[in-house]
Every structure is written in C-alpha cells, then in structure tokens.
Write a protein that binds this DNA or RNA. Structure first.
Length: 872
RNA sequence: GGAAGCAUAGCUCAGCUGGUUCAGAGCAUCUCGUUUACACCGAGAGGGUCCGCGGUUCGAAUCCGUGUGCUUCCA
C-alpha cells in the first residue's frame, strides 16, 4: 500500500465520523453498565460555531470518549436553546428587511415567521459540531421549545406559583428600549462611559436662593419629585420644610433629608427621580414620593414629561442644555466617567424602569443549592469559582422571569375583567378557577398574559428535561439511569444565569443535584488577549481552520494551553503544532510499514530491550494520565501523551528498534511495536479521534474500532527497567553532546571504553548505545585509555576515543565545574542533615531522600575526581 | 465603591499537600545535520534575583502580610 507523504485529514474525518455514527457508537440506551452522562450547554438556536464552542465541546468529547474506553455507557446529549431575545431580534430584523413591522403582525403570524426561521437556520451549529468529531447522541437532540419541554416549563411556573414562589409585582427593572422588554440583572453589562456631569440650580420657593444639584441625566429632571440632602449637611440645614422649583416645567418639589446622600459627591444635593433610578425609587418609597414616569417603552419621552414629548432620551439630553441655560438654570458641565448599563443582547442603553413583572423568589431555593457547592456535593473545577458562587448565592435577589417578547414560553396567566389573575397550565384550568369565583363568567372574558418567560427559566430544567422529566410522571427509567449527570462543561460567565439555577431546579424538582462536577473552561482570547467577538472581527472562521489544519489539530490547539478556568490566548501556532503531531505519527506508521515489507521471522527469544522498556514506560504514563483525568487536568494529560508519543516512542523507541541499514527487522519486534503503537493511539484517541482511528486501522487488520476499544488494566511499572533506560538515554545524550562539542561528523565513528559500576547493563543495552552514537565498539575496562575524551554519566566513567583531534581542556573544565557544583550541593545536604531541628521536624521519608541524595552525590564526586585525576 | 483571581525563560503557560534529581514544557532563538519515517524533521545548546519588600519555618517559586501591575465579577 502506498502511503501519502502527510496525513490527509479531510477524507479521514468524513469517513470516520460517518462510520462511528452508522455503527451506533454515539447512541446510548440504559443497560447494566454505569452511565457517564453529559448534557451539552445548548447553544443559541441561531448560533454559529466559534472558538468558545470548539473549546467547550472538545472538552466534553474528550471526557465522553475517555469514559467510553473505561467501560461506561456514555451519553452526550445535544440540543439548542430558543434564546428568546436573541432569536426574536434576528427575526424582527429579517422582517424589517422584508418591510414588515413586527407590531403589525398578530402573535400567531409573528410566531409562524419565527418558527420558519428556526427550521431554516436553527441548529446549523449542531451540524458544525460533527466536523469537530463530537460523539453526540443525535437521537436525543432536544430544543427548549419542543412540545414536552414547553409543557414542563409551564408546569414548573404553575407549580412555583402555587407554592407562592412566583408572584406579580411592580418593581424597578432593567428595561431594554430597543427590544422593549425587561431584562434580569445578569443580562445587563456595565460599560465605562465618558459622560458629562451637569450642574443645575433649582430655585427655592419664595426665596432668592438656589440649590444646585449634579446629574448625568438632565433629561430626567421632569421626573423629579424631590431634592434630597444629608441631614447633617450644614450647607442645607436651613432648607428643612422648603420646596424647590424644577426648571423649565416649574414644578414644586419638596426638599427631603436622608443619610443615604454622599455629602462629598457633586454638590451634596441629589435630584430624586423615582421612576428612573433604583436608588431614587427606594428613596421615594421611604419618603412616600410621587412617581412620575417620563419615558415611553421605546426610550422616547412620555406625555408626563410635558416637554420634548416623543423625542428620544439621548436627543433630549443634548437639546435640553441650551434651554436650561436660557432659563438660567445651568451652572456648569464637566467631564465625568461613569458606568452605563447596556443590554447584553441588543447593546441598547438600559433604562431603570418601574414595571409590573412576574418574579420568582430565590431565597428558599438558593440555600440547598449554595450548600451543595460549598460542601463539595457538587464539585467545581477549578475550585476557585466556589467563592464567586457563594458571594452571589448569599446575596441573591428575586428573579424577573417575564419578558415582553413573543418567542418563548407564554406565561400561563389569564386576566379576568374583574381584575383577578388566574394561573394554570391551560385556559381550561384558568377558566375553572375563574368560574368558581364568578359562576356567570364567560370563557372569552379571559385574556392570557402576552409576555413570555425568560429563556433561563426553561434552560434551568435542561439536565432533567432532556431525559423526559415530568413532574406528574412517577416512573422514568431513563431519567433514573442518566440523572444526576456526571460533568457539566461550561463558561464561568454563565455561572449565575444557568449553573446556579440548574442546581436550584435540580434540588427543587428531583431532590438531587443535576451534575457531579462542573468544569469551567476559560474564555478564548486572541493573541493580544482581547475577547473574541464579532464586532472586533478577531474571531477566526472555525470551519476554515478545521479544513486547513484538521479537526484533530484544532482540538489539540485549543486543549494544549488551556487548563480549566484559565483563559486561552489563541494562536494559530498551536494548530500547527497539532498538525505536525498528526504528521509525526503518520510518519511513524510509514516507518513501521516499511519494516513490515521485509520483516523476518526469528526464533523466539527475549523481547528487545527497547520493547521491555517502552511497555513499562506506557504503564508509568498510563497511571499519570489516570490521575490527571481524575483531576480534570486535561491539557496536562494531553501534554503527557504528546511527549510519550513524540519523545519516548518516536525519538527513542523507534530509533532503538530500527534495524541497521540493509537489515530486516525481527517479526516479533515489529509485532511488539505495532501493539505498543496501538496502545499509544488509544491513550490519545479522546483528544485526537480521527487520526488515531485512521492509524489504528492502517497498522493492521482490526476486529474492532479504536473508539470502542477498552483500556486494559496496566498494572505497576517496573522501576528497574525504567532506571536502566534512563541511564541509557543519558549516556546517549551525553556522548552525542560530546561529539557535537568536538565537532565530530555524524559519520565519524568512535570507540567507547567504559569503567562501569554495572557491567551487566551493557549486555542488554550495549548494542543500542553503540548504534545511537555511532561507536564501533564498547570495551568494559578499568584501565584508563591513553587518549580519548573523558566524561562521567551518573557513576559511569566513559572515554570516547576518536581519531579526530580534540581539545581535552573543554571536557576537563566542564568536569571541574560539575565537581564544584556537586561539592557545594553536598555541603548543603550535610548542613541540612547536621541540623538537629531538621532531623527532628522533617518527615522520615524526606530525611531518607536527603540521605540518598548525599550518597549519590558522594559517589558521583568520587567518580568525577578519579576521572579528573586520570586526565592530569 | 465592594470582591476575587493572576504576576515563573523572548512569548504562552505547567509547577497538586512547603524539602536541589523542581526551576520545567511547548513555541521562538543559536550550532550542527538532507544517514531511505518525518525539514510539518533530526541531534545538541543557550536563556529565569520564580514582580518588589517584609514575615513564618531547620527549609519558601510554593504559606502569611504588604506594595506595585494586569484581569475579571459585582454595585
């Protein structure tokens, strides 16, 4: 078979993904094996794959594939989130392009367009995940607005309402004037903004005096219903009981006193606008102030403002200044840096607004969810996020769950003309209640709430609902089998939005945690450390990268430098490294295939020393990898396997078993090598599934696929063989270094004379050593040769004899330097061991290692001294 | 304004319960190399007051305090 120069990823990826899928490896049904379950954080149904997804889903796929090789029944559930505000915004924009105004459409008409949009563009992202190699159970694909899911969300709303956790109330909320909907606190981003602080003076009623206030929002003065000063502020003490006049509209408002005021800020006097600021609202409640709402839902000024009615608030902010100046009310304006809230989804500046909304009480549900994380019933990786979680959960506020949108789960509340509100799963249920109150009532009198629920009010049920959870259904074998899930992989940004709420829902409705571990990935940033975003245009086209470098290389690239919870600075150099790695393995395959062509059967004899060593090395590394996976240190695990394959396998092992030029390899050694390569591929498979599966099948005829192959029980590695190989490597490296330093050409041969403490070693490894450094002979002798370069490796005295003229002084200096270092080292150890307090306090094993260090150093010093003496 | 995290080689980062086989890896740099797996490569090498200062300890990159710088979250 002719093998190409490099690994051809494109054909291989398509082939294997289809193969795995058609074999049903991605699908799971409950059986006797333990389950290993992951529910994918459902991406927005309108989303497209970006680097964050690549990282997040690579991690999940790695965990799933690893668990599969350990005998678990793995189940990874895909799906999408309806993302009400984001999707609605896209549909509205699409309609606008067609010249259709959302408000001209009925609810039903609008939803028809929205569903059409969803069918057409929704879920593209799931198809893209296939390119990445994700082992997702496609039969279980869910959407947060599927019928069953929809019903479950409604049931939960009704249930929480019955429990008294859900209520309707007028509070200050964050209003997005562009989407015309309420937002939760978590959906508001605070941005540093350069503003102007405007100083305005209000005339005191029946006086020539003025009081000056400072504001960044002069357009809200028409909503002022008081001026507040600190009760202990001497500047204003005489104004108690007085009134001030709002400029332009000449409204009379009281001057009130409250120690909430910061006397240092501005002028120490605050204009109070209860309708447009949370703090002012609270102040207003306390002092029973009037609330004047001067804004419309689209951010223009309302009739209550009296002036500038219908004009946008930002336009008014500018236009009002000259008028204030003309009225003599403007004192000054100065530059001021403050934070302005903007909508996470639309980018519009959020207005605090007094509004009637539906709320969910959080306190009772938060407590068990807080405890679960604090006592590690649910483990966060890395644990540092526990702090953040605790802080939020201990200061939790009620959750505004209604959104003035159409795309989503419509709030199951019906309003009767009498003013009553009935909450039920459907209209019939609501009417039954209504009918009880009013036997004469007509069903058509009931009007359902027009709003929908916050998207997170549906996604908090995700880990239960994808397995068909139904509060009214007692038995659910699937749910019992897969829930609680094992690991949630997500970004720290949504720890409150989603993670915390899933935990609350889990305890509320399943009396159980939704997952065992939460693995937080970092944020993918560009080389300069900037967050990747559409607006910056610094987000690479992932599908293009997969095409150029291969899916394995992309997975390698995002994993190699991203420990849990740490941001990753993305650099294409990582992808190159991944691609090169695939190619390296590909070439190892080619080498083995070349040997295969003319391998010769030999009598059964002891395995090659290299084989013995490599097998032990694999055992040793397998144990390390096992530990790393337990701690979710995936990038470390990948680095470890990478080095095992590239360094140990390719650079050492394959060179050691390589037959001399023109000779054939022993069939047994070759067979051993293939077996070893297979094990390495298996360890790497979760990280780089395509290239490993491809190589696995090219190595030899296989009766199963690598993806389903089970990891063996490796047992404990033989330390003696590992030590011998370590010495062999050191000898080779040191002698090669010596050759390099003395400018020997690769073709120049040398002879070795070794004064060894372990002559037996050379009967096993001597041949390898000889070939790796191009020596014609190795002589074990205690006599010191007349010529030759002396060096010391461990306690081996080595003489490299060459016909090329060499400068012995270089080697001598080096040895003297090392001797000096070792002597200093020895002194420090002796000091330590001579220190009574050390011997008393240190653990016995530490003292033992110190003693070993001492004897090792002494032995080496002796060897060096002897070698040096011989040189003189 | 409140809170958290980070600061180790030119760059990106490892370094888990304090103990010179822990001062490491990859990339980058330098030297040599085209010997039939691989130049998407091989053999070697150089490079760090582990941010500053103080403390705890027999012993600190590792623990504590403090200063500086950066990042993030919250108000």
């Amino acid at each position: 078979m002719e093998l190409s120069k490099n690994f051809q990823h494109i054909a291989s990826e398509t082939k294997w993904y289809e193969h795995w899928n058609s074999k049903g490896y991605f699908n799971s049904t409950p059986d006797d094996r333990p389950a290993y379950t992951i529910v994918m954080p459902p991406p927005n149904v309108t989303g497209v794959l970006h680097m964050g997804h690549a990282l997040n889903n690579s991690v999940q796929d790695i965990l799933i594939r690893r668990a599969k090789s350990q005998g678990y029944n793995t189940c990874w559930v895909p799906g999408t989130d309806h993302a009400s505000i984001a999707t609605e915004a896209k549909v509205v924009a699409m309609l606008a392009e067609k010249g259709i105004d959302k408000n001209a459409l009925s609810r039903e008409e609008f939803l028809k367009y929205a569903w059409e949009w969803k069918e057409k563009y929704g879920g593209i992202i799931l198809q893209q995940l296939k390119k990445l190699g994700c082992a997702l159970d496609w039969n279980r694909t869910h959407f947060t607005m599927d019928d069953a899911y929809y019903k479950a969300v409604i049931n939960v709303f009704v249930d929480l309402h019955q429990k008294g956790c859900i209520y309707r109330g007028a509070k200050m909320i964050n209003w997005d004037p562009q989407a015309k909907t309420a937002l939760s606190d978590e959906e508001v981003l605070h941005k540093d903004t350069q503003s102007k602080l405007t100083y305005l003076r209000y005339k005191i009623e029946d006086s020539d005096e003025y009081i000056t206030i400072a504001t960044v929002r002069p357009e809200t003065i028409m909503g002022d219903t008081a001026i507040c000063v600190h009760p202990e502020d001497p500047r204003y003490a005489h104004l108690r009981g007085q009134f001030a006049i709002v400029p332009l509209i000449n409204k009379r408002i009281p001057i009130i006193f409250d120690d909430y005021i910061d006397m240092e800020f501005g002028t120490g006097a605050l204009k109070v606008t209860p309708a447009h600021d949370v703090n002012d609202y609270n102040l207003g409640q306390k002092h029973r102030l009037e609330v004047v709402d001067t804004l419309n839902e689209d951010g223009t000024l309302s009739a209550a403002a009296q002036i500038f009615v219908g004009e946008d608030r930002f336009a008014v902010r500018k236009k009002i200044i000259p008028e204030l100046e003309a009225a003599g009310a403007l004192v000054k304006q100065e530059d001021y840096k403050n934070q302005v809230g903007v909508s996470e989804r639309t980018g519009a500046v959020v207005e605090p607004r007094l509004s009637m909304q539906w709320w969910c009480k959080m306190e009772d549900m938060a407590l068990p969810a807080l405890n679960a994380v604090m006592n590690d019933d649910i483990e966060f990786v890395p644990a540092k996020f526990k702090n953040l979680y605790r802080h939020w959960m201990s200061n939790i506020k009620d959750w505004c769950v209604s959104r003035q949108l159409r795309w989503g789960h419509r709030i199951p509340a019906w309003y009767a003309p009498e003013g009553n509100i009935y909450v039920a799963v459907d209209e019939a249920g609501a009417f039954a209640q209504y009918n009880k109150d009013y036997p004469e009532a007509k069903r058509s009198d009931l009007k359902q709430d027009n709003d929908v629920l916050d998207t997170w009010f549906s996604s908090w049920l995700w880990p239960m609902e994808v397995f068909g959870w139904d509060a009214n259904k007692e038995n659910n074998a699937e749910l019992d089998y897969y829930y609680p899930t094992n690991t949630l992989v997500t970004a720290p940004e949504i720890i409150f939005f989603w993670v915390a709420r899933m935990i609350m829902a889990g305890y509320e409705y399943k009396q159980q945690k939704p997952f065992q571990h939460v693995y937080f990935t970092g944020i993918v940033r560009d080389k300069q450390g900037r967050k990747m975003s559409k607006s910056l245009g610094n987000s690479p086209d992932l599908l293009k990268l997969i095409e150029d470098y291969g899916a394995d290389a992309v997975r390698f690239g995002v994993m190699i430098a991203s420990p849990a919870g740490n941001d990753i600075l993305f650099d294409e150099a990582f992808l190159e490294q991944g691609r090169n790695f695939s190619n390296k393995m590909w070439n190892a395959l080619k080498l083995i295939k070349m040997w295969e062509a003319n391998a010769v059967a030999t009598d059964h004899k002891a395995p090659h020393f290299a084989t013995l060593w490599m097998r032990e090395r694999i055992k040793e590394v397998a144990a390390e990898i096992e530990d790393l996976f337990k701690d979710f240190r995936l990038s470390e695990a990948l680095k470890t396997i990478y080095s095992l394959i590239w360094d140990d396998f390719c650079s050492w092992y394959l060179e050691w078993i390589k037959p001399p030029y023109g000779e054939s390899i022993s069939a047994q050694t070759l067979n051993d090598a293939i077996g070893i390569f297979e094990q390495l591929l298996q360890q790497l498979h979760p990280f780089m599934p395509f290239v490993t599966e491809e190589l696995y099948h090219l190595l030899r005829e296989q009766d199963q696929d690598l993806m389903t192959r089970q990891l063996p029980d490796y047992g404990t590695a033989d330390k003696a063989i590992l030590d011998q190989a370590a010495l062999l490597k050191q000898l080779i490296s040191s002698i090669r270094d010596t050759r390099n330093k003395n400018q020997l050409k690769p073709k120049d041969t040398v002879e070795l004379v070794i004064n060894s403490t372990d002559p037996e070693f050379y009967s096993k490894a001597g041949q390898i050593l000889q070939r790796q450094i191009n020596a014609t002979s190795i002589e074990l002798s205690e006599t010191v040769p007349q010529s030759g370069i002396a060096l010391v490796v461990n306690t081996e005295k080595v003489f490299v004899i060459t016909s090329v003229a060499v400068d012995a002084s270089v080697q001598k200096d080096k040895m003297a330097e090392e001797l000096a270092y070792l002597k200093g080292f020895l002194v420090s150890i002796e000091k330590k061991l001579g220190n009574e307090r050390f011997v008393q306090n240190a653990k016995p094993e530490i003292i033992a290692t110190e003693q070993k260090k001492k004897s090792d150093a002494e032995a080496k010093i002796r060897t060096l001294e002897e070698s040096l003496a011989n040189l003189n």
